[in-house]
Amino acid sequence: MTRRLSLAPWTYGFIVALAMWVATSAYSGIGSAGATLSGALAFGAFSVVVGTGQMFVVASGPGNIDLSVPSVLTLAAYVSMTVMQGSDGMLLPGLAAALAVGAVAGAANFLAIIALRLPPIIATLAWSFVFQSLAFNLGGQATLKPPAGLSRFTSLSLGGVQIMPIAVMVLTLVAMVALKRTVWGRQLLATGQSEPAARLAGINVAGVRLMAYMLCGTAAALAGFLLAGFSGGAALNMGDAYLMESIAVVVLGGTSVAGGQANAIGIWGAALFFNLMSTMLNTFGIQAGVRFLLTGALIILIVALVPRPRVR
């Protein structure tokens, strides 16, 4: 393709997000600009956590995707809320329980893929039904309340700077370094680019993928834990929005669905874009149907317009 546009693909999310932030602030007054941004950062943080996990899985090769993200998120939230029983003293055991649920779920996903030789879409879909059932039996229709300490942490801000989005940004940095500088990160991208070549190079392909799926499960679980604190408890439908969103932020963030190429920082741009867009359309008082329509059109437009590196 032409090289007129030399901007990296992942910057588009940030640019569109910025445009929406400006538009929203212009419409409802400069005074609200800070509140708009901090809201988008807080909600965006959850999308980023979930999306980062999904990114590892997507990067591990063509066809790899984790559809069990929403159900793992919900199940981990229910398990951790049950462990903590609303007491601040149990915060760490609760977090550990959530992360353990995520890691086990990720391992179960990969086991089904490798042992039954199922396409990842089907394996993770079937597991998501099982996880959903487990969460349903654990909590039923009731909303399980989080400990006050967790709720305080998720909305804590020091000197006007929110802590949780900052923590998630640190996670993004760690993910970037893991992809670029660690052996596992390089092996993951090599596996994603060409499985036979990676195998011939002596990479334990199955081990690398297992790690990707476990990280994805753990990330979804962490998001569930935090989201339960942020939104006042674990609820059965809390993960629903994150199925499509986790895929969308990964792809719009510049990660190739063909695998072998990942971009951690781009996920932030895409997540901010999603959240600022819904804020903007809400501020403009646009009805739900038009909102969906514009969301879809923008997703397609961004994917279609962004120049992508030609693979192969």
Partner: peptide
Amino acid sequence: IIVTLGMSFIW
């Protein structure tokens, strides 16, 4: 996968 995801929002 991503184009049809966008389409689903449009429909």
